[in-house]
Amino acid sequence: MTVSGGVLLEALGAEASRLHPMLRAQMSSSGERQEARGVFTLAGSRFRRLNLLGVPIVGRDALVSRYERDVPFVLVTATRRDERGRAALDTVREFGFRGGAQLIADRLVASRHPGLVRDVLGRAGRIELILRCEVAEHGALRMVSERAAVRVAGRRIALRGLLRLDVRVEDGWDAVEQRRTIRMRARNPLAGTVLEYRGWYRTVSLGADDAVQKV
């Protein structure tokens, strides 16, 4: 799940004015592509290789099978319009695990409902989250899942009760180090934390038409 792009500003509406100015400037970027690099102080899943059993269900680039500290990562985002003409933000995260790089991809799509975005996880798009966007303390962007579903054999199955997936993402700004901070955790009532990462990153390259200064 990504935390940059005009899709999120659109979801926040008037609340976007409360974001930290640096976050708001980067999210207002007019460039179609951005690349950032950083380090996760902790990243992955405690289930490690057991997650590979879920690949046939959720598809590729939706799970990781490592759990490590001090993991370098690359974040590539691209803004576009989806097949319905809605604003969309595609994100690919490359985790530089010591056992080999792994990817998680997702697409955020603007919702007709104020404050909400739809997040589709993995290239197969089989996991779907409805996220509420809000501005947290110190101007950070917070996203909290309200609903989750999985697509299996062409059917959409809502994940409720003990099957639900609770996701919380917070993207902030470290004024001392002049860099963005990120924290994400996905939990299930039965399994506990199934994916988490936290760390920092900086933009290293921008689209040719982007006016935002590199940080």
Rank of each mutant, 00 (worst) to 15 (best):
P56M: 09
F73P: 01
S65C: 09
E83N: 04
V58A: 13
E68C: 06
A88N: 03
G85Q: 09
G54T: 08
V58S: 09
R49W: 14
V76N: 08
R84S: 13
N51F: 07
S65A: 14
G59M: 09
D82M: 02
R81S: 15
V55D: 01
R60L: 12
P56Y: 00
G59F: 06
E83W: 12
D70N: 14
T77M: 08
T77G: 07
A62L: 08
D70K: 12
R80T: 02
V55K: 12
I57N: 01
L53Q: 01
G54H: 07
E68L: 05
D70A: 14
L89F: 02
R86D: 03
L89P: 00
R60S: 14
R81P: 02
V74P: 02
V58E: 01
L63W: 09
G85F: 13
A62G: 06
R81G: 04
A62K: 00
R66Y: 14
V64L: 09
R49V: 15
R49T: 10
A62N: 00
P56Q: 05
A62P: 04
E83G: 06
A78F: 01
T77E: 09
R69K: 15
G59D: 06
G54I: 06
T77C: 10
L50D: 06
R60M: 07
T77W: 01
D70G: 05
V58I: 14
R84M: 07
D61I: 00
R84T: 05
R66V: 07
T77D: 12
R80A: 13
L52I: 00
V64G: 07
L63F: 13
D70L: 12
V64C: 09
I57P: 01
P72G: 04
R69M: 13
R69T: 14
R49F: 11
V55Q: 12
S65L: 00
V76Q: 14
V55P: 00
E83F: 09
E83L: 10
R81T: 06
R48H: 04
D82C: 05
V64K: 08
R80D: 14
R86W: 11
L50E: 12
L63Q: 10
R81I: 01
A87Q: 12
A62C: 07
P56T: 05
D82Y: 00
G54C: 10
V55R: 14
P56I: 04
R66H: 14
L52Y: 11
L89A: 08
P56D: 07
R80W: 02
G59K: 03
V71I: 05
L50H: 04
G54R: 15
F73Y: 15
T77R: 11
L53D: 00
T77N: 06
A78G: 00
L52N: 11
